[in-house]
């Protein structure tokens, strides 16, 4: 097993506590904007821990991606939440006791596993550049993973567009799709 220096242990401990505390804060604070930024804080803490583990690229990707994602999330919060600013304290939960039970049981089962498993020692040494290792894996031995990810993301683009589009083909061409010209609010073409 590898030894870990004291300062990295301190950083990991502080960031770990921060990640969980901010995660709890997401479901405690009244304001949805604050909940979004608490979640962002939790993601950034995890990115910091990844940085300690020498995973520079993945840490930076996590931090950048989650910052943008939470910014988008904040916009959607204001669009769809009944109480985005938390000015009117209200309960937005259901089956709280059952949910807490499931959460606690999951945590306890995982912790029992974590602390009873006889973890194997580390095999091999750290690579000189973890980013290079990942890049070579993506372009070589693990290319299939990347191909599947690419198709999944493309499918997401299509499905997201279809779901978010207000007017489908039945709105444009009629219930039996028999209209010769689509009925669009704005006619296409050059207006001739």
């Amino acid at each position: 097993m590898v030894d870990v220096s004291t300062w990295s242990l301190v950083v990991v401990a502080v960031l770990g506590v921060l990640a969980v505390a901010l995660g709890v804060a997401v479901f405690v604070v009244d304001s949805m904007a604050r909940a979004t930024f608490a979640l962002l804080g939790s993601f950034l803490a995890v990115a910091g821990i990844l940085l300690v583990f020498d995973l520079v690229y993945l840490a930076v990707v996590t931090a950048l991606m989650m910052t943008i994602e939470m910014a988008v999330m904040a916009v959607f919060m204001i669009m769809f939440m009944m109480n985005p600013a938390g000015l009117m304290p209200m309960s937005m939960v259901h089956n709280q006791r059952g949910s807490a039970g499931v959460g606690v049981v999951t945590f306890v089962v995982l912790v029992i596993g974590i602390w009873t498993v006889d973890w194997p020692p580390r095999t091999g040494a750290l690579p000189e550049d973890s980013t290079r290792q990942l890049g070579e894996a993506i372009m070589g031995s693990h290319m299939l993973v990347m191909l599947v990810i690419g198709i999944a993301l493309f499918g997401t683009i299509l499905a997201g567009t279809v779901l978010a589009t207000a007017r489908g083909r039945y709105d444009r061409f009629g219930p039996d799709l028999s209209a010769a010209r689509p009925s669009d609010p704005v006619e296409g073409g050059m207006g001739r």
Partner: peptide
Amino acid sequence: VLTVAAGLVGVGLYGALSQQSIVM
């Protein structure tokens, strides 16, 4: 570290099951 990760999973599961809003 894995215990911290388990804590995050547990809290997330609680949130996903208990919240009413789709975004939450």
